[in-house]
Design a protein around this nucleic acid. Structure first.
Lengths: 224, 224
DNA sequence: ACCTGAACACCGTTCAAGT
DNA sequence: ACCTGAACACCGTTCAAGT
């Protein structure tokens, strides 16, 4: 009898249909609800203040329910970081696509997208690049996705070099310099450091464009 | 003897911070001991895992003794950040001095010092630039010292422009681009991101020098 | 002035038990 | 499979009390 139920479910929601809701007990998708609550809580009290019990309370389940979906607190931080790296990569690639096949413009657009993502998702950025996850080696997928993003940039650099837009150098070095430039500005802007130092009159988008131009053209005076 | 300690503390923490102990009861200088223990603990378990009770245990006092020296947990994080910004500024200025009056060389040396500080003090950097301090506006001295460091760089940029080493642009913009470049590379190196992405063969000092050269000269191909 | 112990309201995590 | 309540060892913070 219980087998019949299983078979009926297979018939009704087979491979062609949307994923089966797995017959939730109290919650439609507790895992997703917890992650959404985590993003909301981070926005309010900062990434470091995240508490599993607080999330459960917010979502309306007992404080132990989360352990069905996450091994521990680090596991939800890792999930947030992973989501962040994926979204960051998508933002960069989507922005780059718009300028294909001009590799130089693609580099610039993906850099601006990186900064824009950081400014609009400061807390995920802290989880992705900060010290919050106690043992990052337990989450090799984070390094894998980050490496994928870096390879995307390196490939763009190679294309820009073939285009004749970039000087002749190790593409990995140019990619690292670009990453560092964009990452540094992104973190300084998204953590409010630039305003703290320069006053509140700064528009991130304008500053970012100007800074990227400077890296492309160099700080040095054009020789006479 | 204890007055010497007090004077050092005044330098580092200024008048706005918690009162300075003059006559220790059990401990020579509990405040300094707690801060030292904090640096040690961060090195072991990460900055986010810092606990006041743990520090007290490490130093050998009751878990409430720390409240004589710090208003709360944020207060010790702010003290660590403040110390960090001061030391970072000193490292940059000391390195720059060695190359006076060549402003271009001074810029380069202070950038390398920034990266070197970050790589050898990753956890203070997280406290200084990360999300750990819940309400940074309660510690305006942090922004003040950071602004001082930024002004030092901007002044160097002005000198380099007068020297003819830098292109004609807003010195604050060139300073921001330099800061972002150096800060981004520093954070990526000090958090292990570069190795996670590029493999473990990277020497920070060599990479840093190459990246700073790229910013100075530009990524673009020299026009023919 | 500085330190202590008890007390309170929180946490993360584990476990046996319920549906 | 998913959720619950009790239990344990931690925290940050406050307070009255000791020297």
């Amino acid at each position: 009898m219980r087998h019949e139920v299983a078979i009926v479910n297979m018939d009704a929601y087979g491979a062609t249909m949307a994923p089966i809701p797995r017959k939730p007990y109290h919650h439609g998708d507790l895992r997703a609800a917890l992650l959404a609550a985590a993003l909301e809580e981070m926005g309010r009290h900062g990434a470091a203040a995240l508490s599993l019990r607080g999330l459960a309370r917010l979502v309306g389940v007992t404080h132990t329910a989360a352990y069905r979906h996450f091994r521990d607190r680090d596991d939800v931080l890792a999930a947030i970081a992973e989501q962040g790296f994926v979204q960051l990569g998508q933002a960069m690639q989507t922005a780059a696509e718009q300028h294909r096949p001009n590799a130089l413009a693609m580099m610039r657009a993906s850099g601006l997208a990186y900064i824009d993502f950081a400014v609009s998702h400061p807390h995920p950025m802290q989880v992705m690049f900060g010290d919050l996850i106690r043992d990052r080696s337990k989450y090799p997928s984070l390094a894998t996705i980050a490496r994928g993003n870096a390879e995307f940039v390196t490939e763009l650099v190679r294309q820009a070099m073939q285009e004749g837009s970039y000087r002749d150098a190790d593409p990995r070095l140019i990619a690292l310099a670009s990453w560092a430039q964009v990452h540094g500005l992104a973190m300084l802007l998204s953590s409010g450091m630039v305003e703290g130092v320069a006053g509140a009159g700064a528009d991130s988008a304008i500053l970012s464009a100007a800074v990227l131009d400077l890296l492309r053209d160099g700080l040095a005076a054009p020789h006479p």
